[in-house]
């Protein structure tokens, strides 16, 4: 079996739920990581002072010092670890506060403990957690500016989908897929995967619709020059785009727009096509 060797990291688990700490610690230790535990915010802060941590799994609802305050201190340290927040408090205000304080990801409790291994794998694979600027943090209007990296794409998608966690599963999954495809397009083609360039994302929630706007720093694209995309395929040649991509030396793909069109109710580009809005109606 072909598999990727998992790098070993130093993880601190901070939660006043002792049973949960032990379950997570066992899973992560079995996965090869070095794991420490802290039962409250004060203990976590003392441990953070000595440094050497790669990842912190941090409950928000801690006795004494709150998880959000521990997050702020952790991210302000000389070698800030990646911080993954855990909480059963799924209010948008809490989520946005965590994002603003540069939490790397947000896990809503209860979650399958076994999922933590994959989350830590993602954290390990991430470069030093890049900053996301939260321009607007109202639940009805979230606006984010972020560097053009695919790692950021995963993070933002994770947070944005948590904001819509109260919606039906089918709606959430459709929105999540569409959001991911368009954001990745913006980062890869508009931003050229350059972390020095920024993508701007707006997420609006009205009574009867969700609206997402993604603006990338690129020059846009020409709708008449999309032979490398499946939406330009002749009806009787559904694989033509793949052949064009091979000829042009592009990576396999070209299906994102076609997928997105089927997942959302409206898809609107600006004239240059470096900004896109998609809408999902809520019925």
């Amino acid at each position: 079996m072909a598999a990727t060797t998992r790098p070993r990291r130093h993880v601190l688990i901070v939660d006043d739920d002792r049973a949960l700490r032990h379950v997570l610690a066992s899973l992560l230790a079995d996965a090869g990581h070095v794991v420490e535990q802290a039962g409250d915010g004060h203990e976590a802060l003392r441990r953070l002072e000595t440094g050497g941590l790669d990842v912190v799994l941090l409950d928000i609802g801690l006795p004494g010092v709150s998880g959000l305050d521990v997050l702020t201190r952790a991210r302000a340290s000389a070698s800030p670890p990646i911080v993954i927040m855990m909480t059963s408090d799924d209010t948008p205000e809490t989520l946005l506060s965590a994002v603003r304080r540069q939490a790397w990801r947000f896990l809503r409790k209860p979650f399958a403990p076994s999922a933590i291994v994959e989350v830590i794998d993602d954290a390990v694979a991430a470069s030093a957690a890049m900053s996301i600027e939260v321009v607007s943090a109202r639940p009805e209007w979230v606006e984010i500016v972020a560097p053009c990296t695919l790692e950021i794409s995963d993070r933002i998608q994770s947070f944005v989908m948590q904001l819509d966690a109260d919606l039906p599963v089918q709606v959430r999954e459709a929105v999540a897929q569409a959001f991911r495809e368009l954001l990745n397009n913006a980062i890869e083609w508009g931003g050229r995967l350059d972390p020095a360039r920024k993508v701007r994302i707006s997420c609006l929630r009205a009574k009867r619709l969700l609206l997402y706007r993604i603006a990338d720093p690129g020059d846009g694209f020409d709708i008449d020059k999309l032979r490398h995309c499946a939406i330009a395929n002749p009806v009787d040649a559904p694989l033509q785009h793949a052949i064009v991509r091979e000829e042009q030396g592009l990576r396999p793909g070209g299906l994102g727009l076609m997928m997105t069109q089927s997942l959302v109710d409206e898809l609107i580009y600006n004239e240059a096509r470096n900004e896109v809005v998609f809408i999902k109606y809520l019925d």
């Binding site: 495809e181 793949a242 991509r245 396999p252 070209g254 994102g256």
Partner: peptide
């Protein structure tokens, strides 16, 4: 599974 993954299956 995303469009890149499906694209690789096609390729």
């Amino acid at each position: 599974l995303d469009s890149a993954g499906v694209g690789m299956l096609v390729s």
